[in-house]
């Protein structure tokens, strides 16, 4: 039984690694969903092999939960996140991040300078104070 468990575990581990490679490559969100589905089911299989090897039943409820949660994940992504704006999935370079940060700082600075109303210089209080 130990040999069977080891061989099956190795097969499942290779499957999980291949799914992770696809998860990283993409190219679209839906491909990642599909790869994540494989990963979840492989996890279910790994827990099942552990239960079969040790003849213990404590881990079986985890399988039920994983089977349901994996489904919810892929359906939610397919329903709500399948439309990807152009270029959003890309990791920005350091220069782009720095440029965006500088732009944000400049906008903040001009906003701060444009605020010159009386309230900010100790103007009189409006309304009745009880």
């Amino acid at each position: 039984m130990i040999v069977v468990s080891v061989v099956a575990s190795v097969l499942l581990a290779v499957a999980a690694v291949l799914a992770i490679v696809r998860l990283e490559r993409g190219p679209s969100m839906l491909d990642r969903t599909v790869a994540f589905d494989v990963l979840t089911t492989t996890l279910v299989g790994a827990i099942a092999i552990e239960a079969a090897w040790s003849r213990r039943t404590e881990t079986i409820p985890i399988l039920v939960v994983l089977a349901l949660v994996g489904f919810v994940g892929s359906v939610v992504i397919a329903r709500f996140a399948s439309v990807e704006p152009e270029g959003e999935g890309r990791i920005r370079t350091a220069e782009e991040v720095a440029a965006e940060e500088a732009e944000r700082q400049a906008a903040l600075e001009t906003e701060r300078e444009s605020v010159t109303d009386a309230e900010h210089h100790g103007g009189g209080a409006n309304g009745e104070v009880r």
Binding site: A8, D31, V38
Partner: peptide, 27 residues
Amino acid sequence: LLLGAFFSFSAGVGVLRFGNLLARMHA
């Protein structure tokens, strides 16, 4: 167990090797 692990493995291979979205979905 061995057959099941083999089929899961083949699904992993399929999801990496197949060329388009629908083929991967099949795997």
